[in-house]
Design a protein around this nucleic acid. Structure first.
Length: 139
DNA sequence: GCCAACGTTGGC
DNA sequence: GCCAACGTTGGC
């Protein structure tokens, strides 16, 4: 059975939770999301889906690739039971980070949800966009 | 630190 | 159910 994976992008402020924090921890719980659109994405995620790890505020760039290690469970920081978390594991750091500036400057990436829904903390990435960003990162 | 974008809340 | 006020996010 072939499993078709999806691609995502998750934002984190590096002074709160950085790529290095994720690597140090080995596995991170993506909790605290309180936005319905982001929740839709969290619930659509499947184990094995790959995720760009993006640093907002400081750096403002995609720094690494992570993978969903546990899909859709109730957010442990939520008392109402309405919100969803996933767990992620680091896969590898990009050879070279891809900055928001570069993404904005690239016509092939103009439709990325990172740009069109920039306030969304968890967004979708198409396969074409995924491959394009990887190419920019030098593999 | 400022401000624009936009999601959420609550009064009516 | 509309919409104004408010709060939060995130780039600069």
């Amino acid at each position: 059975m072939t499993k078709i994976n999806s691609y995502w992008l998750m934002k984190s402020e590096p002074d709160v939770y950085s790529w290095d924090d994720l690597v140090a921890e080995g596995e991170g719980t993506w909790d605290g999301v309180r936005n319905y659109t982001a929740r839709l994405n969290l619930r659509a995620m499947q184990v094995g889906d790959e995720v760009f790890f993006y640093h907002s505020n400081i750096g403002v760039e995609i720094v690494g690739i992570a993978v969903i290690s546990q899909e859709g469970f109730q957010d442990p920081t939520d008392e109402t039971g309405r919100w969803t978390s996933v767990k992620v594991k680091p896969v590898r750091k990009l050879k070279r980070p891809v900055t928001l500036k570069e993404i904005k400057a690239d016509p092939a990436l103009a439709e990325m949800e990172l740009l069109t829904k920039f306030r969304l903390s968890v967004s979708k990435v198409t396969e074409a966009e995924w491959n394009h960003v990887l190419a920019l990162a030098g593999g």
